[in-house]
Nucleic acid binder design. Structure first.
Lengths: 343, 343
DNA sequence: CTGAAAGCGCTTACAG
DNA sequence: CTGAAAGCGCTTACAG
C-alpha cells in the first residue's frame, strides 16, 4: 500500500499535522524534525494523494478545454485546435494542472462538459473556437472563470485571446502591394467578426497605397477548398481580374490556386496569392504557398496564463489580447520572381 | 454555496447515508423516501462532489495519455496523435473519464507524467507512439494498467493496438500489381519493427504475383519529405527504375513524387506512387495521392476500450490488436488512366 | 429500509 | 515549534 502522512507520523512518533507541514515546507517546523520527516518520507516513497488535497482545497486542478464537437478529423480546424492544445498543455503542465476536454454542439454536449458545469470539475475553462453563448452563460452563473480563444465574439466583456486578424490581412495585402501589384483582390469568409477584421486590414493596406478598392475584387467562401475555388472563378470572370489576391485562409488559398491553373493561368506569374493560417504541407504545394502564419500555440499559452491569473484572482491585464501573426514568404506571391526589384 | 448530501439530509430529517444511497439508486431505499430525496436534490441543484467520491473510491477517473515530447507542431506525427486522441476522447467521455496528458523524452518528462507515476494520478495509461521502455517499467511496478498505441515494440507481453502495417503494405503493393505494373519498388523507414512489417506485406504481394524481388528496388528514408526525395532519387538512378513504388508514409510519398518530377518524369505516367497514412490535404496535391489510410481514431478507441477492461479487471481479449487500414484510390497510382483495363 | 459511526488522506484554525 | 480536533463531502460496513 501507498504510504500516507499517518504512516510517517507513526514511525517518527509525531503528529500528522507536523508531518503535513514539513512536507509542504511550512516555516513553522524545526529544521531537525523537518529533515527527519523528509528523510523518512523519501525512504517510504511517500507521495501526497492529490485527491485528498483537492477535497480540502476545493480545487480540482483541472482546466476545462471546450471544443466544437463538429470538427472533422484531418480538417484545418482539427489541426488548428490540436496546436492550440499543445500551447495550453505547456502552461498547464508547468502549473500542475490537468486538462479536461469537453465538446459541444447545438444538439449535443459531452459528459465532460456536464461534469464541468454541474460538478465544477474544472477550476477554469478555455473555450476554443465558436461555442454557444449558452455555455458561456452557464459557466458565468456558476462563477467559473472563462477565457475565449479564437472566438470572434463581439462581446467586449469576455476575456479573450485572438489572432490579430486585421494585422494579418494588412500584412498579406501590404506584401502584395510591395511587390508592385496594383490591383489586389480579397477572398473572405462568411463569418462576421472575423471577416470584418480581415477586410479592415485589407482596406487599410490599400488606403496607405492610395489604391481605390474595387467592390468586384471582393469574394467570399465558407472556408473550405471548394469554396475558395469558386470564389476565385468569380474573380477570374471579371473583365480585368486582380493581379494579386489575399485569401483569409490557406485551404481556400489552395482552392483558388487550383482555379487559376484550371483557367489556364499560372501562379504567381499571372495572379499572385497570399493565404493566412500556416497549415502543414503548404510549403510542398506547387507553388509553395506564401501565407500569414498564425501563432496558434501562443494563443493557447497566453489564454491559459490569463485564465490562471483569473483563477488566482490576481489578473489585471487586458480583457482581450490579440496575438500578432507573421508573414512567411514562399513562392505563390511572386517574391522570388520580383526579387530583383525588392531585394 | 453548493448543496451537499448533508444539506439534503437536514431538510428531510434523514441521515446522510440514506441520501447517499438514494442518489446512487441503491435498491435498499424505499420508493417513497427515494422520491422525496430526488425531488429535493433537484430543487437544491445538488450535484455530487467528484473529488470526495474519488477519495473514497480510490479512483481518479483520469486516463493518462503519454505522448512524445519531441513531436513538432504541424508535423505528421502531431496530426496523427491528435486524431488518436479524438478516438480516445470519444470512449473516455462515454465512460466518464477525463484525459490527462503527459509528455516524455529521454531527457525530460512533464509534471503530468510524474504525477501519474508518483501520485497515481490516473487509473490507467495509454502510451502513444514510441515512448521509453523505462516509463513502461515504472508503470508496471506501480501496477497501473497500460495499453500501447502505435508502438512497434517487439514485446508480446504488453497490451497493444497497432495499425496492421503488414496488411497496409500488402494492399498498396497489390494495388500497383493489379494495375499491371510488373516492377515495384519500396521506400521504407529506418524503424525496425514497423519497417519489417511493411516489408513483409510488400514481399507477400510480390510473391503472390510470382515476381522476384530486386534488392535494388528497396530504399529507405527517415520519414520526412526530404528523405523520401532522396530515396526516390536513388531508385531513379538504377538502370531500369521500378514502374511503381509503395512508400510507407505519405510525407515521403510526396517527397518522392517531387523527385520524379524534378527528374523530368511524371506521376503516374512514368512511375506510379502509393503512400500510407491518410494525412490531410494529400488529395489536393498534383497528382492527388493514392494512399493506404490508417484508421487512426479507431486505434485510440480500441485501445481505450481495452484499457477500461483492464482497469475493471474484466478484459479477456487478445493482448495485441491490429486494425486494418484501407486503400484510398486517387490519381498518383494511375488507376484512372488504366481504368479501361481494370474497371 | 434507515441510521450512527468510522473512514478515505489530507489541511488548518486553535491551543499550548 | 508541535499536537489534538474538526472538517472537506462522500461511502460503507455494521446494527437494528
Amino acid at each position: 500500500m501507498r504510504a500516507t502522512i499517518k504512516d510517517i507520523a507513526k514511525v517518527l512518533n509525531l503528529s500528522p499535522s507536523t508531518v503535513s507541514r514539513a512536507l509542504r515546507d511550512c516555516s513553522s517546523v524545526s529544521k531537525k524534525t523537518r529533515e527527519k520527516i523528509l528523510h523518512i518520507a523519501q525512504s517510504m516513497d511517500y507521495q501526497p494523494n492529490l485527491t485528498a488535497r483537492g477535497l480540502v482545497s476545493g480545487r480540482t486542478q483541472n482546466i476545462g478545454v471546450i471544443l466544437s464537437i463538429e470538427t472533422r478529423d484531418y480538417s484545418s480546424l482539427q489541426i488548428f485546435n490540436s496546436i492550440v492544445v499543445n500551447g495550453i498543455f505547456e502552461v498547464a503542465d508547468a502549473a500542475n494542472y490537468n486538462l479536461t476536454f469537453a465538446k459541444e454542439s447545438k444538439k449535443h454536449q459531452t459528459g465532460a462538459l456536464q461534469r464541468i458545469i454541474d460538478n465544477r470539475d474544472a477550476d477554469g475553462v478555455l473555450i476554443v473556437n465558436v461555442v454557444s453563448e449558452d455555455i458561456l452563460a452557464k459557466l458565468t452563473i456558476k462563477n467559473i472563470p472563462v477565457v475565449l480563444i479564437d472566438n470572434h465574439f463581439d462581446n467586449l466583456q469576455s476575456y479573450a485571446v485572438n489572432n490579430n486578424d486585421r494585422l494579418g490581412a494588412y500584412l498579406g495585402t501590404k506584401h502584395l502591394l510591395s511587390l508592385g501589384y496594383e490591383s489586389i483582390g480579397f477572398i473572405g469568409i462568411s463569418e462576421h467578426a472575423f471577416n470584418r477584421e480581415c477586410e479592415m486590414g485589407y482596406f487599410q493596406a490599400l488606403l496607405e497605397s492610395e489604391i481605390r478598392t474595387d467592390p468586384n475584387f471582393l469574394a467570399k467562401g465558407n472556408g473550405d477548398l471548394g469554396s475558395g475555388y469558386d470564389a476565385m472563378i468569380k474573380l477570374l470572370k471579371i473583365n480585368r481580374p486582380p493581379r494579386g489576391v489575399f485569401v483569409v485562409n490557406d485551404e481556400m488559398a489552395i482552392g483558388s490556386i487550383k482555379a487559376i491553373k484550371d483557367y489556364g493561368l499560372s501562379v504567381p506569374e499571372d495572379i499572385a496569392i497570399v493565404g493566412m493560417d500556416g497549415m502543414p504541407f503548404m510549403e510542398y504545394f506547387d507553388p509553395p504557398l506564401t501565407t500569414v502564419k498564425i501563432e496558434v500555440a501562443e494563443l493557447g499559452r497566453t489564454a491559459l496564463q490569463m485564465l490562471l491569473g483569473l483563477i488566482e484572482d490576481n489578473y489585471s491585464g487586458n480583457h482581450q489580447i490579440a496575438i500578432s501573426p507573421r508573414l512567411i514568404i514562399r513562392k505563390s506571391c511572386g517574391y522570388y520572381i520580383n526579387s530583383t526589384l525588392t531585394k
